[in-house]
């Protein structure tokens, strides 16, 4: 995906597990995993806000743009 979620790097830097982050943010581990693996279609501002708050970062630290195919999911 052109937009990459750098959750792995941020979690490693903060030595935090995905489960712990999920507990703090109030999102299920499954959903956070979807976000981490780049399968998510969209991120709510409320989720982004919670992630930035818990990871003590800016949205720009969490998201990165990489040139490439925009949407790996063909339409149904």
């Amino acid at each position: 995906m052109a937009i990459r979620v750098q959750l792995d790097r941020l979690l490693a830097e903060r030595r935090m597990s995905l489960t712990e982050l999920a507990d703090r943010v109030g999102v299920t581990v499954a959903n956070l995993s979807i976000l981490k693996t780049g399968k998510a279609r969209a991120v709510r501002f409320s989720t982004l806000e919670a992630l930035c708050r818990e990871l003590d970062c800016q949205p720009g630290d969490l998201l990165a743009f990489e040139p490439g195919p925009a949407n790996p999911f063909p339409e149904d």
Binding site: V27, N31, L32, I34, L35, K39, A40, R41, A42, V43, R44, T47, E75, D76
Partner: peptide
């Protein structure tokens, strides 16, 4: 229904 299913999937993958 095709469009409805697509929108549902969009919603499912909105975190």
């Amino acid at each position: 229904f095709r469009e409805g299913a697509r929108l549902r999937r969009e919603t499912e993958l909105t975190i």
